[in-house]
Structures are given as structure tokens and as C-alpha cells.
Design a binder for these strands. Structure first.
Lengths: 223, 223
DNA sequence: TCCATAATATGAGATATCTCATATAATTGT
DNA sequence: ACAATTATATGAGATATCTCATATTATGGA
């Protein structure tokens, strides 16, 4: 982890201004942290000292179950907060957060800003919106996972995460995210190839029939 | 649906004061609504005109999928909000809310209070806390549903919802909530009876070995 | 460059869960 | 009080998904 100082910090503060998210002057409190790919930003089970706001990069929220299984709860993208659970709730089992690419965040120290943030209607409104969207998404994922086979959820995921017509996510990550075994994931990929929806190219897949995938994905939707 | 007026309304305002959740005087805007068991408080797909706060009773949030399956997303209990998604998000697919018992709510009209609520740090802080807990619970349910068989989740549900040592939820509701077929739910109930954890009494079940159920439920936990 | 590790791949057998059919019992509205 | 609806119950067969074993192929670090 690297903390940007002086001019470098200043450059980020100017380029990615988040002053509009707060009614009080936040800039002076902001630290700018950079994390390398695969670095753990928050350790599972250990309360963080900061509220984070992602400005560049991507991260993943993980939880480990008692049986050893690991779930990828969600992706964190640019302009997302994390650490907000610990800001709001004195008691909370902290989930692990891992950078999936090089990731730069604003880190807002709790000890200096908690009180101010919790009094700031502008910030709280943004945070409530963010949380409401997050909660809605989780609810959607939950009910979809119970109501549809992997086929549908995978079709959706492929379309969401494809780069143009090329899909290149790692299978191991996707297993944790969609909550299925590696074996089963590959079965369904093989089916999609058999049916001609996808074509394997090295370790990537080319989307040949987006319409077919779309048909499978569409049945999930409501929200 | 019945709207309480005058003295009856007044009595509820005094007995269940929620003034502390707001920095501005909310009482004058509060309507008190009573819904009968099984009545729909919010129609799926139809935006409500109120933010609701439950003071007596219980309700359920439902969503209908394209394939006709219905999911019970969550229960709403006393002191919970609902309709907050519509307060915060201009675009949102509204879920259905149905009273499971006679339910009395405070109903806060959007058209008179939205602006004030969205400026009120006290209220927004409470709402953010509520949403963070909700979102955490959904995430937990999601990952649990993908990581553990019904056996574990049902054991947890039985212990959570039992009245002393008697369990008396309706199977049909529980299917929607745990996202499994009626058939499978009954299989697992039958197993629990075989193993002596439960004993059927008429249409209820008596919990004979709470410790065993606890063992099954415990593996879910982290949060 | 080489080794250890992580990721991909595939088969075989088990099991968790679903669908459909059908029967009976309870509940509700008229 | 009766008919219609809703909830409970059970069997049989299908399928979605998992576990485990085992290869092969990439990848990152000393």
C-alpha cells in the first residue's frame, strides 16, 4: 500500500473532487491510498480505520464461511464507498476487501471525521442512496439465485462483464461470485459453446450469439 | 385499509412517538394506517405515496419473477421502514408489501415531507443505519443460500421463528422465503422428524433437540 | 530458468433440489 | 352449510449441482 503525499495527493484531490458529496470541507482530511492488484485493503474480521471511496480501479468483497467456502459478495467499482458499515454500526463482522486491479481510493479517517460525517445531511443522503441501491441489488441477486439455474445467471454475467464481444473473466472468481462449483461452471460454459452461443479462443470466449444469451438473461430482470 | 383520525390517531402518535427519528416536527404530517391480514399495503410495480414505519404487526416483501415464481424477499417487523427505496430513488421497481398480521403503520406523505426528510441529518442517519443493516442481512442470506443446503438454513429459520419450543410457520410461506420447492421443504422436515430433532403435533412441530438444530444453524453464522 | 502454485480441464458418481401428479385436510366466502 | 380455494402430504422420476480424483497448462517469484 502506498500513500500519496504532497503534489501527487494534490493532483488526485483536484482531478477527482468529491467535495460535492459533503457539506463540510472534506479535502483536508482525505488521504489518497494506492493498493496493488490482489492486495487486501481490508482484512476480514478486522475493523478498518477509514471510510473508503474508490476513484480508480476495482475491488472485491469476500466472506469466508465456517465450512471454508469463500463467497465473493460483490464487486466494488469506481465511485463506490466501502467501510460504510463500520462507520454506521458499532457491531459488525467486517468483510475482506481485495483489490482486483491497481486501485486508488480516498480514505477518510474515522477518528477525525466520523462525528462530522454523521451530522452531514448532504453526505448522509448520498450514503443512503448508495446503500439503498446496494441493498436492492443484493435482494435481486438473492432472489435470482434461488429462482433460476446457473444458465440464466451466467448469461447475464457474461453480457455484463464482457469487453465488447470478448469475455475474459477468471473462472475461479466467477465461481465464488455466482456461488457454484468450478465443475458446474465449466459444464455450463461447455453447453454454451455446444449451442454456439460462445466460442472458445485460448482462455477467452467470443460471444457469437448475444441474442440467445440475452434471452436467457432477460428472464432474471425486473429491477 | 383504515386511516385513524382524531383521538385514535392522537393516541397512536403519543404511544409510539417517532419524533426522535427526525430533527423537524414530524407529528403533524403523520397518517396512521391500519391494514388487515393479507392486505396489500403496496402493490408490486406501483410507486407508493408514503414512507411507512411499522408500529404494530408484521409484513412481507414480495417480488414476482418473469417465470411466475414468487420470492419472499424479507419480513418487515415493528420499527422497520418501508417505501424508503422510492423516497431515495426516482427509478425503482417497486416490490409488493403484504401485511401478514393486522398491521398499523405511520405513513409519511412524500409530497409534503420528501424535501424536508432529504435535508434532515437525524433522519438520514437513522435511515442509513437501517439500510446498512438491511443490506448486510441480504448479503448474508445471499451467500448462505449459495453455500449451504436447505438443512442448515431451515434449522436457522426454525430456531429464529419458533415460539418457545413450538414452530408454526406456514410451509407455503417458508418455501417462498427460503427459495425451495414445497416438496423439498417437506423432505427436510421429514428428515428432521426422523432424526428426532422435531416432532409433528397436528400442523405444528415441537422442537425436541434444539442443540442439534443449533449445530446445523451455527455453521451459517459469521454475522 | 525452474519450481511451486494457481488456473484450467474432464470424468464418474453422489446428492440436493425440482417438476409433476395426485390425494386429503383445512379455511374462507357466500 | 357448502363449494371453492388454499394448505398439507407423498410418490416417482428428472435435472441441477456438488465432490473428488486426476491431468494439463499457465504464472509469479527465487
Amino acid at each position: 500500500m502506498e500513500i500519496y503525499k504532497n503534489e501527487k495527493r494534490q493532483r488526485y484531490l483536484e482531478e477527482y473532487s468529491i467535495g460535492y458529496l459533503f457539506a463540510f470541507p472534506i479535502e483536508e482530511f482525505l488521504e489518497v491510498h494506492e493498493y496493488k492488484r490482489d492486495e487486501w485493503i481490508i482484512q476480514e474480521g478486522t475493523r478498518p480505520d477509514f471510510l473508503f471511496y474508490v476513484i480508480e480501479g476495482k475491488a472485491k468483497i469476500y466472506v469466508t464461511h465456517q465450512n471454508g467456502k469463500v463467497s465473493l459478495i460483490n464487486f466494488i467499482n469506481e465511485e463506490d464507498f466501502f467501510g460504510e458499515m463500520e462507520l454506521l454500526n458499532p457491531i459488525y463482522y467486517t468483510k475482506g476487501v481485495q483489490a482486483s486491479t491497481k486501485t486508488v481510493c480516498f480514505a477518510i479517517p474515522f477518528h477525525r471525521c466520523r462525528a462530522r460525517m454523521l451530522e452531514d445531511a448532504t453526505f448522509l443522503r448520498e450514503l443512503a442512496k448508495f446503500l439503498s441501491v446496494k441493498s436492492t441489488q443484493m435482494a435481486a441477486k438473492y432472489t435470482q439465485s434461488l429462482s433460476f439455474p446457473l444458465e440464466n445467471r451466467l448469461a447475464d454475467f457474461i453480457l455484463q462483464s464482457a469487453d465488447g464481444e470478448v469475455y475474459k473473466e477468471k473462472h475461479v472468481t466467477v465461481c465464488d461470485f455466482l456461488g457454484v462449483s468450478y465443475r458446474h461452471l465449466l459444464y455450463v460454459f461447455a453447453q454454451f459453446c455446444d449451442k454456439g452461443y460462445l466460442q472458445k479462443e485460448g482462455r477467452h470466449y467470443r460471444i457469437l450469439q448475444p441474442k440467445e444469451l440475452n434471452g436467457l438473461a432477460r428472464v432474471l430482470m425486473n429491477e
